[in-house]
Design a protein around this nucleic acid. Structure first.
Length: 231
DNA sequence: AACTTATCCAACCGCCGCTAC
DNA sequence: AGTAGCGGCGGTTGGATAAGT
């Protein structure tokens, strides 16, 4: 293995600890569980192996299709891809891709005049993780090619708003970003109204999870999948 | 049967973004 | 404004095992 394998006893201790104290606070887990492992090892072991409802064994055909499709849309964003496959972990998906799919897909692309095919693929990289930190955006955009990506402009001057004002600003910025993105993709008019509203409401209200980033990713993904599957 | 090569996958590593101080 | 600490992510490693010769 890549490191020291976990023993049954360690697994038991970790499980017991998570059941007692819940997920999160990983820095405390080694101490609480009495494990001689770092926080990251504990987290990874839980997420990839011990967590309930983890699906093991071969990937079904539908799952493979989904992975290929999502990888086209998202690139190597394994956690997002895994999020669409119930019971599968990001590590599983990544391993499966590296072992089974990457070669197949590459070979296929080579067969079908891959240069043309890869030009058509537009990898969605939702940029604005934090509305307030424009430096993050700059660094990301500098580091990665901007061609063939959906780039989203954002305003930077929001620090002067208080909590209330900031929320309003975030809404309007997300509003702007969504329209900007949809506009650039040239597909704003292609979505049914309820679909647009559902995504937008979920994004603005915070919805599932704690971060706006997830909703933003989710919305973009839904939009693109809608587009992809219906075409 | 013995050896080599390929494949699988759990675990580790380094980096990034966020948050609290 | 700067920084340390944290959670999270993607890339990589390397041992175990299967398949091939």
């Amino acid at each position: 293995m890549g490191g020291v394998a976990w023993t049954e006893e360690e697994d038991h201790l970790l499980k017991k600890c998570i059941q007692q104290y819940g997920e999160g606070k990983w820095h405390r887990v080694p101490l609480l569980a009495g494990l001689n492992r770092c926080r990251k090892s504990c987290r990874l072991r839980w997420l990839n192996y011990l967590r309930p409802n983890i699906k093991r064994g071969n990937f079904a055909e539908e799952e493979v299709e989904m992975i290929v499709k999502l990888h086209k849309l998202l690139g190597n964003r394994w956690s997002l891809i895994a999020g669409r496959l119930p019971g599968r972990t990001a590590n599983d998906v990544k391993n499966y891709w590296n072992c089974h799919l990457s070669k197949k897909v590459n070979a296929l692309e080579a067969d079908q005049d891959g240069s043309q095919l890869s030009k058509d693929v537009q990898i969605i990289r939702p940029q604005p993780r934090n509305i307030g930190s424009s430096s993050t955006m700059k660094r990301r955009n500098q580091g990665e090619s901007q061609t063939d990506e959906v780039l989203v402009e954002q305003e930077s001057d929001i620090t002067k708003f208080d909590a209330n004002g900031k929320n309003n600003m975030i809404e309007s910025q997300q509003d702007m970003m969504m329209y900007s993105c949809l506009d650039q993709q040239g597909m704003f008019g292609e979505f049914p109204m309820d679909f647009q509203l559902e995504g937008f409401e979920a994004m603005v209200s915070g919805g599932e999870g704690s971060s706006n980033q997830w909703n933003w990713d989710d919305l973009l993904l839904d939009m693109d999948m809608y587009n992809d599957f219906s075409s």
